[in-house]
Simulated assay, not measured.
Amino acid sequence: MARHFGRVHVFRDQDSLALGALYARRIRAALDESDVVVSVIGRHWLDARDKRGVRCIDNERDWVRMELRIAFDRGIPVVPVLLDDTLLPVPDSLPDDIRGLALSQGWCIRHQTLENDIDGLIRRLAPGAATPGSSPAPQPTATQHNSPTGRGIVVANQNGTQNVTLNNPHGS
């Protein structure tokens, strides 16, 4: 996605935070600039647990939950991206403040069709946008809403303890 939209328009905490950056402040600023939050969900995302054995998503101070809650509170569309046939969580399995995730239109990415699935996601996020191997899209892209403010996309990496990227959904 960063190759397509430009690295400055895609935020991923592991890749986008400078050393020494204040995490909470930078995450909130990225959400303020966002047009859409892409919520990457793997098979074990909902069951990821903290050191005490409590589901991470049940902790009100969990960053994934806070990012989703902020997005929903601000009316930022949240796109669940389901990896390798992961099912969308049922509403009752989520805390009330992020229950909208279970009702959001999502997208599937499969290991076997990774490139095509990512290209399809990009086309849906920015209709008319070019995908790798095709001619460049007219600028500015739809993800910027033709705005000079430089608004972009926040990618919330939420696959529990796995390090998931869209380039390698089976990361370490």
Score class of each variant (00 low, 15 high):
Asp50Trp: 07
Ser16Cys: 09
Arg7Thr: 15
Ile122Val: 13
Arg25Glu: 15
Ile76Gln: 04
Ala130Asn: 08
Ser16His: 03
Ala137Leu: 11
Glu60Trp: 08
Val78Ile: 07
Ser104Ala: 12
His4Tyr: 08
Arg3Cys: 13
Asn59Met: 07
Leu17Ala: 08
Ala129Val: 11
Ser93Leu: 07
Thr165Lys: 05
Cys108Leu: 00
Arg69His: 04
Val90Met: 11
Arg124Ser: 13
Thr143Asn: 07
Pro132Met: 07
Gly171Phe: 02
Val37Ser: 03
Cys108Ser: 07
Pro80Ser: 10
Val81Phe: 01
Gly160Ser: 02
Val154Asp: 00
Val164His: 01
Pro77Gly: 09
Val154Trp: 01
Asp96Tyr: 06
Leu88Gly: 08
Pro132Lys: 10
Leu87His: 14
Thr161Cys: 10
Pro95Lys: 01
Leu94Arg: 01
Asp32Glu: 15
Asp50His: 04
Leu46Ile: 14
Val90Leu: 15
Asp32Trp: 05
Ile153Leu: 02
Leu88Asp: 07
Asp15Ala: 15
Leu88Trp: 09
Cys56Lys: 12
Arg28His: 06
Gln112Asn: 02
Thr161Tyr: 06
Leu87Trp: 14
Leu31Ser: 09
Ser16Trp: 09
Val37Trp: 00
Arg7Asn: 12
Val38Lys: 08
Ile27Asn: 10
Val54Tyr: 03
Leu31His: 12
Ile57Val: 15
Asp119Thr: 00
Pro140Ser: 07
Phe11Ser: 01
Leu19Trp: 12
Asp119Ile: 01
Trp63Leu: 00
Arg12Gly: 15
Asn59Arg: 09
Pro127Thr: 00
Thr131Ser: 02
Asp97Gln: 05
Pro140Asp: 08
Phe11Glu: 14
Val79Phe: 05
Ala71Arg: 10
Leu22Trp: 10
Thr149Gly: 05
Asn167Phe: 03
Met66Arg: 09
Arg49Gln: 13
Val164Lys: 00
Gly20Phe: 11
Gln144Lys: 09
Glu33Ile: 00
Asp97Gly: 08
Leu114Val: 04
Trp45Ile: 02
